[in-house]
Amino acid sequence: MGTIYKDTHILKSLVVCDDTKDSRTKKVFHALDTICHEFDLGSPIWLDANIKDFQRFSKVRFSQDNFIEVLDFDYFQLEIIEED
């Protein structure tokens, strides 16, 4: 799930379901590409802190430091929601 926040409010949110047999990493990057395309947003740059957060919590926040273009929101959050 990808969500854009500004002033603690959700501006946009999108859930991407991937039932393929691809690896978890491929699914994550495919979902990220899909969400960024839908939100007309450039792909974020993964910093070491982002990678560690994502590995620990299956959730990561990307702020202005992760994007080349100027953002009109506070942060973009990517979260993995897995169904059993």
Rank of each mutant, 00 (worst) to 15 (best):
H37W: 01
S23W: 01
R56H: 02
I45C: 10
H9L: 14
I81P: 00
L47G: 01
L78D: 02
K26T: 11
E82F: 06
R24L: 10
V16E: 02
Y5P: 01
R56S: 09
F57L: 07
F73S: 08
L32F: 08
K27E: 00
D74N: 08
H9R: 13
R56E: 12
I80Y: 07
T20R: 12
D33F: 14
D53E: 14
M1N: 05
T8R: 13
V28W: 12
I4A: 07
K26M: 06
H9I: 04
Y75D: 15
D33T: 15
M1W: 04
P44I: 06
D84N: 13
K6T: 00
K59P: 00
D65I: 04
F62V: 02
Y75C: 15
D72Y: 11
L41I: 06
N50V: 04
T20M: 05
K26E: 08
Q55D: 07
L14E: 13
D19V: 08
K12V: 01
I10R: 05
E79C: 01
T8Q: 11
S23I: 04
S43E: 03
V70R: 01
E69G: 06
Q77D: 07
F39H: 03
I81D: 11
T3L: 11
K52H: 09
L32H: 12
F62Q: 03
T34G: 01
L32N: 09
W46F: 15
C17G: 02
K27A: 00
G42A: 13
V60C: 09
A49D: 09
L78W: 08
F39Y: 09
K12D: 11
D65V: 02
E83A: 08
V70F: 03
F73W: 13
N66A: 08
S23Y: 05
K52L: 12
